[in-house]
Amino acid sequence: MRRKSSLVLLAFAVFFAALSPLMRWYAFPRLAKVPANQYQVVVLEAKNATLLTDTSLVPKVVPKLSVIQTLKGNVEESKKVKADTGRDVVVWDSLSYIVGPDGKMVSQVPERYIFDAHSQDPVHTASESVDGDPVHREGIEFKFPFLTEKRDYFYYDAQARTTAPIHYKATQNFRGLKVYYFEQIVPWVKVPLPKTMPGGITPAALGGSVERWYTTKRMFWVDPTTGAPVNGEEVHQEELRFPQTPDTKPVTVFAGDVKMREDYIDSTVELVKSQRQLILLLTSYLPWGFLILGVVLLALSLFLEARGRRPADPAPDDTVRDPDPDPRPIAV
């Protein structure tokens, strides 16, 4: 009976010991993925920002500018791309909608971002776009990969429509979470004019020959487990330049420090704290738990086996002993 129990325990010990590495290195990379039906809204604000509000080309300081950024997973489109490419993809239709202090729209930039649900490598299709223009993204955007590393990543800049490194700078504590701080500085670069500009400004209204230039310092505080930014900030400057009239000074379109609104930081931190438990379950809690359980079961199995093999106790001795044996040696 003991031998049978030890064999059953051995089978369970091997089961859990094998499950440990399988869970971490086989199941996790296949199970952890960005959900195709993600829906998330983030509000960012720039206080006392400089903004060009009309065709007078005189920028004004406004008390507050809000950027409402919506990410919406398009499940139907992701199924189509999966059928075409064979890859598990996520299609995000996003909108950055900028609202002035009066609540009226200043500008809007729609995007379609398609990426691998597991690795977050970009996936290229004809529908990939920024502000209605087809683009070819390289690198990441909006979110970092699961188990983010302390290294530089290539980050796609939707304004410049180019990819450049975003640098890991430090590990910090942010509202109870250990986060990685990343920073990217985009030097002054000529960028396309958005389809919608403040105050109904159009290239034609500005005399035709006008260029938009932009620079930014982009900052992200990223939870390394989920790769989700829990805070973001941009020190952002845009101006119009008039190459055919060198005497005309550049005009600031926007200049401000764009930060996430406090209540959205709180809700993002709470969301990330709950989501990271799922990742930790697959990468840490279950693998270690299974390994320990396997070792304990193996030890128990060996113990039972050893007890089962121990020779039986000797039978009771019924012979009558001499109550007073003679201790004296026999003299020959």
Binding site: Y26, A27, R30, L31, K33, P35, A36, N37, Y39, V41, V43, S66, I68, T70, K72, G73, N74, V75, E76, S78, K79, D93, S94, L95, Y97, V99, G103, M105, Q108, P110
Partner: peptide, 22 residues
Amino acid sequence: TMTAVGAPAGKTSPKPLVTTVP
């Protein structure tokens, strides 16, 4: 089996792309 089954994709959220400050 776990990896073959995977997680369901779900449905696209009916919520709109937001154009007012929540």
